[in-house]
Amino acid sequence: MSTPRFIDAILDWHPTWFLARLALSGAYLLGGVVKLTDWHGAVAEQAHFGMQPAALWAALTIAVELTGPALILSGRLVWLGAGMLGVFTLFAAITANAFWTMAPGSAERFGATNAFFEHLGLIGGFVLVALVAERERRRG
C-alpha cells in the first residue's frame, strides 16, 4: 500500500524535519535553560539523585541539555548531538528510574518502570535522527 498523498506532502515539507527534531529535543533545551536560570535548583536536583559533586553534575547537565539540541536543530554534527542526548538519557533513566530497586507491585515501581522505558524510546528517537541526518548528508 502506498503512502497517502497528504502524508507524502507533510513528510516532504521541509519544516517537518526541523519540527520533528524540535519535538524530540525541545524538552532538553527547555530543561537546560530552566537549570541555567535556576542554578540552585539545578544543583539541588543533582544532589537529590545522589550525584556528587552536585555543582559539577549540574554544569555538565546544562552543557549537554543546551549543546545536544543546538547541534540537532542546526543540522550540523547531528550524530554528536543525538549521541550526547542519548547517552545522557540512558544515564538519567538508570539514575532516576531504577525500578529494579523498588518494591515489586508498588506504585513507585510502576511509575519508574514506565518512565525508564519511555526514556529508552527517546534514545531510539535520537538514533533515528542521527540515521536520517546521515542519509540526508550522503545524498548531498
Rank of each mutant, 00 (worst) to 15 (best):
I62W: 00
S2W: 04
W13A: 12
V34L: 06
F117S: 09
N114H: 12
V87D: 07
G68M: 04
S106H: 14
A133Q: 08
I72C: 06
S2N: 07
M51G: 00
L77Y: 13
F18A: 07
Y28A: 13
L11R: 11
A70N: 05
F99P: 11
A63M: 02
L80E: 13
V129C: 12
P15I: 05
L73G: 02
I72R: 06
L19R: 02
T61C: 06
A115L: 04
A42H: 12
T101V: 07
A9K: 09
L90Y: 11
V129R: 01
A133P: 13
L80F: 12
A107I: 09
L85A: 08
T37H: 06
F126G: 01
G75A: 05
F99C: 10
R76F: 05
P4V: 01
H48E: 15
W39G: 11
P104C: 01
V64K: 02
A47G: 08
V87R: 08
A130N: 07
V78L: 02
N97R: 13
A23S: 09
I72T: 05
L77T: 02
A133K: 07
G41H: 09
L73S: 03
V33Q: 06
M51H: 08
E134I: 07
G83F: 04
H48Q: 14
E108V: 15
V64S: 03
T3G: 01
A115E: 14
T16F: 15
G125C: 07
P53I: 09
G111S: 11
